[in-house]
Design a protein around this nucleic acid. Sequence first.
DNA 1: ACGCAATACTTTTGATCAAATTGCCCGTGA
DNA 2: TCACGGGCAATTTGATCAAAAGTATTGCGT
Lengths: 216, 216
Amino acid sequence: MHKLVSKKPEHETIYLRVKEMILFGEVIPGQPVTIHGLADLIGTGVTPAREAIRRLTAEGALVIQTNRRIEVPAMTADRLQQIELVRMTVEPELAEAAASNCKPNDISELERLDLLVDEAIKVGDIRGYLEANYRFHFYLYGLAEAQILRGIAETLWLRIGPSLRVVCGRYGTANLVDHHRATTRALRAGDAATTREAIAQDIRQGMDFVRQTAFE
Amino acid sequence: MHKLVSKKPEHETIYLRVKEMILFGEVIPGQPVTIHGLADLIGTGVTPAREAIRRLTAEGALVIQTNRRIEVPAMTADRLQQIELVRMTVEPELAEAAASNCKPNDISELERLDLLVDEAIKVGDIRGYLEANYRFHFYLYGLAEAQILRGIAETLWLRIGPSLRVVCGRYGTANLVDHHRATTRALRAGDAATTREAIAQDIRQGMDFVRQTAFE
DNA sequence: ACGCAATACTTTTGATCAAATTGCCCGTGA
DNA sequence: TCACGGGCAATTTGATCAAAAGTATTGCGT
């Protein structure tokens, strides 16, 4: 019999929790992070918290300001440009590759996730929007079976998460537009090139939206 | 009085040491890594070793096979292709940006490093070649002042380091060709576009060289 | 000799504690 | 009021230990 509960280590739990907090806008740029703070968050010792912090800083989700100040990084126009360059390379590629491996029930799942996105936008649920949008994209990217590219995409999402939250909070969810419908339509048609283009458009528009905000 | 020696933490020391081992071909794909092994390597406790491992796995330099087996990842044709895609996006961009910030003594330094590369190739010093080649590229990339792109480039180099070592060991250094001279010439001419192209060629050729080897 | 099971050993994992480092606050003096 | 310095407090850092988990090995029975 297979394991019912996969007991994951504490440091993994902390890592995943903080990752969610960053991706889904529960933290703010500039917010300090301490080892004890994370340990208390989960209710564990400091050792696993340290490992989670090392992992997150290695991924660029946190930055070490001084020896004893770690915080979630602030966005700048320059950093945004670097992120966009790599996103525009990696994510359309993932989308195109995903189109080849995509089965009908995968498309159904993507359409379900897109409905969650629309619903969150309608009711102005920022956290819900960020989470559903993330799940849509990475369910798609997971189909590509390109572990390295997918990992890079995740680090980039970790970097823009806090800023997305700030921008959404300022302008609301009403102005949010996405190209998910075009994506699922292309997938149903088995059109990989159009899938790639739809995701490319989605990213471009999303990054433009973030760029609206003045940084620093 | 300012501090003369900046005492860096043990986990940083271990991290840098293992990073060098991977980049400069001191480890072999498939080689297992244990917490105690790293701790003994530096002569320290296991706590800092754990943090170093978390960081390295987050960067893709190590992979977690099972719960208690961590090793240097093996290369596959598929992984190589993913790496090349991102390298060809990031590194030429870094090179072009570097050209704008490049001062004369920077070029001199790059030429000095290139001489070390040539010398290592001539005497067949694989480790020396890998190190000098790395220093040439990342001295250049450092000039670009694009922290995120540079970080991504480093993770990609960490991923191909062990394989480069294997390929060089098999075919020797005699067949190695690079485009460093074209790079420094373009830099002296202040020609950013040609600098970008030289580095792009350098990467393409290097990746082709690795691709020669059949991965099972 | 082979398969199966139990045991022993290696390794990770997480808590705790002492020491070191650094930021911070407050008081003193000009 | 402000600059400077000392001391306090919070935090990181690294070692150590106990417990858990998995792997390899040994031994037993057929």
